[in-house]
Simulated scan of single mutants.
Amino acid sequence: MPLWVRSSPLPVPATGRLQMAAALRIPEGQEQPQLRLAIEGRWQGQVYYRRINVGRPERPEDPTPPELSTQWARFAISVTDLPLSGLSDLRVGFDLMSDGEVWIDDVAVFDLWLEEREYDELLKSASAARLQVETGRLHECRLFLESYWPALLRRHLPLEEPPAVTAMPLPPTSPPSPSRRLLPSLSARSRSSWLPPAEVPETRPRGAGSTAEADKSWLPSWLRWR
């Protein structure tokens, strides 16, 4: 026996787009159920109903839908051409068309998003528009800015003005305290009186080491052998 669940009524989005996403899973050892993700309402006195299937096909001739797993996975139904007038009692929900058990969590509804192909297309168009501005083709760039996606984003995603940055006044610099005096720098000669004496290299006794090493110490540098 089919089982269905619906949300409370939603306001009709001015974007003409609606997406419902949810995390789904099934218990261990259960067969794939026949589950629908649905968007439903009333339009011009008739039932407005859109759906996608997950789990198992409802009829043998239906295409194979994505299967559910025992691990949480995210699924979504997206409608990009909702009627902008005459639509009422808009809801999202789930229809279980077969026996089985499905766990549902983290349901979210969006009225503005980009599919991956839409994002790629918008990114390419924006890059082309930037190049058109840099090369002086302003008319072509204006045509892009007046096209569907830039107009939609301007209407529903207005840019926020950055917050004004207020400069903080620096604290006043106080003059040096009269009780402090700057000592004059010591000259190199006066400093030598308190510097520790330089270490004197240890002198090897005459008899230590070989005679050749001792003789090398007094030869001029250009004549010493190695």
Rank of each mutant, 00 (worst) to 15 (best):
S177M: 13
S192H: 12
G86E: 11
L35G: 05
L182P: 00
G209Q: 10
W149G: 00
A188P: 03
M1G: 11
A14D: 14
S187G: 13
S78G: 01
T70S: 14
Q46E: 15
S147A: 15
A164Y: 03
R6N: 06
R226K: 15
P172R: 07
D62T: 10
L131P: 00
P65S: 10
E31K: 04
P184F: 04
L90K: 01
L157K: 03
P205Y: 03
R50G: 07
P171S: 03
W194I: 15
L182F: 12
L84Q: 13
L18G: 06
F94K: 02
V47T: 12
M168R: 13
L96H: 04
R224L: 08
W43Q: 12
S174L: 15
W103R: 07
S185E: 10
P66C: 03
P205S: 12
S127G: 07
R154V: 08
A73S: 13
S7N: 01
P83S: 06
A151E: 12
R91T: 14
R6H: 02
L112G: 07
Q34F: 01
P162C: 03
Y48I: 02
T203K: 14
W222H: 11
A73L: 08
P197T: 07
V47C: 00
V133Y: 07
T80A: 03
P65A: 09
A128G: 02
A38F: 04
E28C: 01
A151C: 13
P27V: 06
E202C: 09
R154C: 10
L183P: 06
A76V: 01
R130V: 12
R59E: 07
W225T: 15
G41V: 02
Y119V: 00
Q46D: 12
A151N: 08
A208K: 10
V133D: 08
I26C: 11
S192K: 14
E40R: 11
T15S: 11
D99K: 04
R56V: 00
S78H: 04
E140S: 04
P169H: 05
Q30T: 11
S147K: 10
P9N: 14
Y148T: 12
G136P: 12
S147L: 12
T203F: 10
L223N: 04
Q32P: 02
S221L: 11
I39T: 03
V5G: 03
P57F: 03
E134C: 09
T80E: 10
G55V: 05
L114V: 05
Y119H: 13
A22D: 00
T173K: 14
V109F: 04
W225I: 08
K124W: 04
L183I: 03
R224Y: 09
P220E: 09
R191A: 13
R226C: 07
L37C: 08
L145S: 11
P158R: 02
R154E: 15
P11I: 08
P33Y: 09
P63A: 13
Q44L: 13
S221T: 08
P13K: 04
W113Q: 12
N53Y: 10
Q71I: 01
Q132L: 14
A38S: 11
V12S: 06
E213A: 15
P169S: 09
P60R: 10
D106Y: 06
W149P: 03
G55D: 07
F144V: 12
R42S: 14
S174K: 11
L84C: 02
A126K: 01
G93Y: 02
L143A: 06
W194C: 14
M168A: 11
P178H: 09
S147V: 14
S78Y: 01
V165L: 13
P220T: 05
